[in-house]
Nucleic acid binder design. Structure first.
Lengths: 341, 341
DNA sequence: CTCCGTTCGGCAAACGTTTGCAACAGATTA
DNA sequence: TAATCTGTTGCAAACGTTTGCCGAACGGAG
């Protein structure tokens, strides 16, 4: 049915091996022959069969990309960047969604293992042990989590959390709440640790609420608890929760940022669309996707298993403002300018 | 290196064909033998090599899913549903992003063609001719567009647009604006036609503004033009544009819905998070994803190329309210209740 | 004129499966 | 008792490539 290397060989009067070489090792074939073969290949509409190639070379030129939830707005920009980057290197990407389920995740990796040259594990929910185990079946790169010897790319959320807390402290806030994310999340732990330390360093009280499912509803539901603490500033595990909180506070007649300041994490697109626009820590998700692809593709060459840390940036918008201990006359803009130092 | 069918055969003392049949045609092998083979396979950690299987059966058990922009919030729920649905049927999904570029799209389909059993084309930007042509290379299912003989699943946006317009007319609006989407979009044409007809039928003036790139910025930029028309209600090509418009109107001190009503299209997650929450036409994107996968997988069996139309639903929230010709005392809620009839 | 080195292209084995065919045993039927 | 059938298994070819090896052709050097 489909046109194979054999058809091209026959049509151009050479052996199939010559046709093969024309594509996979052009320098080994005479320029004249090469052009002739290419011409007939084009004419016949020949496309190499990747399965056959994979069978013999052992490389599929496919990679797997596994995320907890495709519909979570945090992931699409990363998926997009990774896919585009991979395609530019002639790799195709299987995308799969685990629905936040570690069991599904584990099975998925095993199912994909034989079909890909490696897998990108984004914010995995599995245990370290499981990942260690899978690693022996297929090359892995982990995103958003640090595991001993494993190649990984993480966002420097600790520094992001510190900037956020400093920003709030500088604004005159002395009691902060952290709206915690899901239990198994490495990122959540990092943020909590860094934010707590920074708050103490700034002489502010630090209260942790949670854990929560990282969706807007959870943020909205937490509004009452937040108000009950008496805190004047909130840092949320992610933007979705921060936005939920924002709306719920507004619905209760609490003014943001006049009465309470809110900071999110991730800088998803929605954050610039809600009012007040959300101050948040921007994660370079696209860069992370590209870096992860590069690490995976290089992994074959040497065994070097680096770990890349990407910078995060505090994006100051309108959900943060002066707190009760604000320096006289301070406005968000001034403090922000100062924060940049 | 990896454990093959041959290792399993040797270890369990049967011929490789028996092992093969144990997996691909279990009813042809003796139950005792089968359990024995399965046991050793499990023990050895055997996983069938899909490339080899594909090579001989001609079926890869992979499908391609091509969208214009993964990061566009309209697509992720569809991708997610399609992927989950496909996986349940033991298919894996290549996801690719064309960045709204028809050329990339065309090349992508050709590159993927040999590696998949079929491709889902979501909101394709190519010409009908190109799609017709590609169809001869690989089974295709088109989403969000209708092309003569091609299997397709579309949302009934016409009906959605009609409900939206009726809703606005019932609320007492007599001059509507349609914020048009991108030029090549089939959906855009359908909405414009249906909305225009419905407006005329309701005795309302109908003004079209555009085309626009379907992003929030375009909606914001259109605010001035919208106000200049003197219309009291706006229907936008999608939620992103509607939200942009919403915010821009608020920034200009125009009250929504008191002075102007706004209706979007798609019901992306963000629409429930902005204030006022957005009245919009909900598209069953997840269902569309599943339906498309089913159509593609059935296509092999018979040659039946059906076309599925999915229902859309008007979701009435807070961005629409009574217009200048509102029936005395009408509130959004009352009119909405009536609209359900 | 011979020899050697290069460049090019053919040959055939291999990759890990699936599957039509044949063989065989035991059970059933005539 | 012979013939037929059924269920189970083995055999081997095929799928479309890649690639190590070998030989042919050619040109230049001696």
């Amino acid at each position: 049915m489909a046109v194979t290397i054999r058809d091209v060989a026959k049509a151009s009067g050479v052996h199939i091996s010559t046709v093969s070489r024309t594509f996979s090792a052009p320098h080994l074939v005479n320029p004249d022959t090469r052009t002739r073969v290419l011409a007939t290949a084009e004419e016949l509409g020949y496309r190499p069969n990747r399965a056959a190639r994979a069978l013999i070379t052992g490389r599929t030129h496919n990679i797997g990309l596994i995320v907890a939830d495709i519909a979570n707005p945090f992931f699409p920009p990363m998926i997009k960047a990774a896919e585009t980057h991979a395609r530019r290197r002639d790799y195709h990407v299987f995308v799969a969604d685990t629905d936040e389920d570690p069991v599904v995740e584990y099975d998925l990796v095993r199912a994909l293992a034989k079909q890909v040259d490696g897998i990108l594990l984004c914010s995995p929910r599995m245990s370290d042990d499981q990942i260690e185990h899978l690693r022996r079946e297929v090359p892995l790169v982990v995103v958003n989590r640090l595991i001993n010897g494993l190649p990984a790319v993480v966002m420097d959320v600790g520094t992001g959390a510190r900037s956020a807390v400093r920003h709030l402290v500088d604004l005159g806030h002395r009691h902060l709440v952290y709206l915690s994310g899901p239990r198994g999340s490495w990122t959540n732990r990092e943020i909590r640790k860094a934010a707590g330390a920074a708050a103490r360093a700034g002489g502010a009280e630090f209260t942790v609420l949670g854990p929560h499912v990282p969706v807007s509803q959870a943020g909205a539901d937490a509004a009452g608890a937040v108000l009950a603490t008496g805190a004047t500033a909130v840092l949320a595990y992610n933007d979705l929760m921060a936005i939920g909180l924002l709306q719920s506070l507004q619905d209760r007649g609490v003014a943001v940022p006049r009465q309470i300041s809110v900071v999110g994490f991730d800088d998803i697109a929605t954050s610039a669309l809600v009012r007040p626009t959300l101050t948040t820590v921007a994660n370079p998700t696209a860069a992370a996707g590209r870096a992860a692809v590069d690490m995976l593709l290089q992994q074959g060459d040497d065994g070097a298993t680096g770990q890349v840390t990407l910078r995060t940036d505090l994006v100051i918008r309108n959900s943060t403002g002066p707190g009760p201990y604000a320096p006289a006359g301070a406005t968000t803009a001034e403090v922000a300018a100062y924060a940049k130092e």
